[in-house]
Computed example of a mutant assay.
Amino acid sequence: MEEGPTRIMLAVNQSTIKGYPHPSISSKRAFEWTLQKIVRSNTSGFRFLFLHVLVPDEDGFDEVDSIFASPDDFKELKKRDNARGLHLLEYFVTRCHEIGVASEAWLKKGDPTEVICLEVKRIQPDFLVVGSRGLGPFKKVFVGTVSEFCAKHAECPVITIKRREDETPDDPVDD
């Protein structure tokens, strides 16, 4: 039986420092680590499956304390959010294209922990790669950790890549 390329799902998010369309330090690190340590020169043997989960703001207004007067106002917000997520994914897909690795990318909305695990179940990748900020136990309680949740609940092997010490911003919660 002939098998296709190894399918690597990579959950990516935007930088909390620079915002969209910049990838987070952890997402970039996870991607680059996977290229260097797993893909190496075997670009035809792998396919990246990039997933970005748009997290809805609690009130749905994304830092905007305005009153919206028409349904078109909301359509514009949705278009803007989707465009931001697409620009983030474009970074990774473009990089794959430059080096000759096949890739796919898509956006979902919701809680990243739940959405990533549901997408793993639906897509059934060979493994999932997620970046980690490497927060200590105290900060994890308040911030939460997507990588830890995925490691426990995803229905495939999970590789968690920590960012390097020299990549950590002044506030490790930032990424």
Rank of each mutant, 00 (worst) to 15 (best):
A30Q: 04
D59S: 02
I99K: 08
D171F: 06
T160L: 08
F48I: 00
L49M: 09
G45V: 08
R122G: 00
V93A: 13
K37G: 08
T113F: 02
V141I: 12
M1V: 11
Y20N: 13
E167Q: 15
P137N: 13
P71H: 12
I116M: 08
G110F: 09
V129E: 04
G19N: 09
E58F: 13
D111N: 15
D73F: 09
S66F: 15
D72M: 07
K108N: 03
I38R: 06
D73C: 13
Y91P: 07
I8K: 00
L35P: 07
I25K: 03
F149E: 09
K18L: 15
A102V: 07
P125K: 04
D170E: 15
F142I: 10
K37W: 08
K28P: 00
Q124V: 00
T113Y: 06
A151T: 12
T34H: 02
L77A: 05
V53I: 12
L35R: 13
H97M: 04
D59W: 09
A30T: 04
P125C: 03
S27T: 09
H87C: 10
D57V: 08
H97E: 09
Q36R: 13
E2T: 13
I8R: 01
T43N: 03
D72W: 10
I161F: 10
G110M: 03
W106H: 14
S44M: 03
S70N: 00
E98L: 08
E155D: 10
R163F: 03
E155K: 13
I17Q: 08
E148W: 04
K28F: 02
E63N: 14
T43W: 05
V120C: 06
F68Q: 03
Q124H: 00
T113H: 08
A151Y: 10
S132P: 12
E148A: 08
G60W: 09
A11N: 07
D81Y: 13
T113R: 14
V55R: 01
V158M: 11
V53T: 06
L77R: 07
F50A: 05
I99V: 06
K37P: 01
V39Y: 00
T113E: 11
F48H: 05
P112M: 15
L86P: 00
A69C: 12
A154N: 01
C117P: 02
S27C: 03
D73G: 02
S27M: 02
I161W: 07
Q36M: 15
E58K: 07
L107W: 05
K75A: 12
I38V: 15
E90D: 11
C96W: 02
R7I: 05
E104G: 01
H97D: 12
R164F: 06
P71E: 14
G136W: 12
C156D: 10
P125F: 04
I116R: 06
L35D: 06
A83E: 11
W33H: 14
R29N: 11
V129S: 03
D73H: 08
K37A: 14
R122N: 01
D170M: 12
V146K: 02
V93C: 04
P56L: 07
K152M: 00
I25E: 00
V146D: 09
V130W: 01
T43E: 04
V143H: 02
A151G: 04
P71C: 07
V129R: 02
I116D: 02
P21Y: 10
G4H: 01
G4E: 00
H87K: 10
I25H: 05
V173G: 09
S103Y: 05
I161L: 07
G85A: 04
I67C: 13
E76W: 07
P157I: 01
E165T: 11
G134W: 02
